[in-house]
């Protein structure tokens, strides 16, 4: 692995950036996600989260038993606004004040 190794390909987060977050004292997947942007792209962490978890465990920053994935965000897969709009029960109409 090199400094240019990409851990999160959706958001282009490199191993170097993760190392920087760890050097800044961060050790929790939620905070590292928000420090680097890891896991916030189209795959929502399906690819990078396990790599990050493994790194934190290898460094002794977290025990495997305590490791949790970050909160899953709906939708599970990207869905168009058009498809979702069709599911609206009441279409917002009336201009209110």
């Amino acid at each position: 692995m090199t400094a240019r190794t990409f851990v999160c390909r959706c958001e282009d987060v490199t191993l170097t950036e993760i190392e920087r977050a760890i050097a800044a004292g961060l050790s929790d997947v939620e905070e590292i996600k928000r420090y680097t942007g890891l896991g916030t792209g189209p795959c929502q962490g399906k690819e990078c989260l396990s790599a990050l978890g493994r790194l934190l465990v290898a460094r002794g920053l977290i025990s495997p038993a305590a490791l949790r994935p970050f909160t899953a965000r709906p939708p599970v897969e990207p869905v168009t606004f058009g498809a979702l709009a069709a599911g609206a029960t009441e279409v917002p109409e009336d201009p209110s004040p």
């Binding site: 709906p74 990207p78 869905v79 168009t80 606004f81 979702l84 709009a85 917002p92």
Partner: peptide, 26 residues
């Protein structure tokens, strides 16, 4: 889901081209 559908219906009326755009995270 109520938020997703309500927002999408409103947004696609005001900005029709968004109908083809995909929601990633909520």
């Amino acid at each position: 889901l109520r938020f997703l559908t309500h927002l999408s219906a409103t947004l696609t009326r005001l900005m029709p081209i968004t109908a083809a755009m995909k929601v990633l995270r909520q």
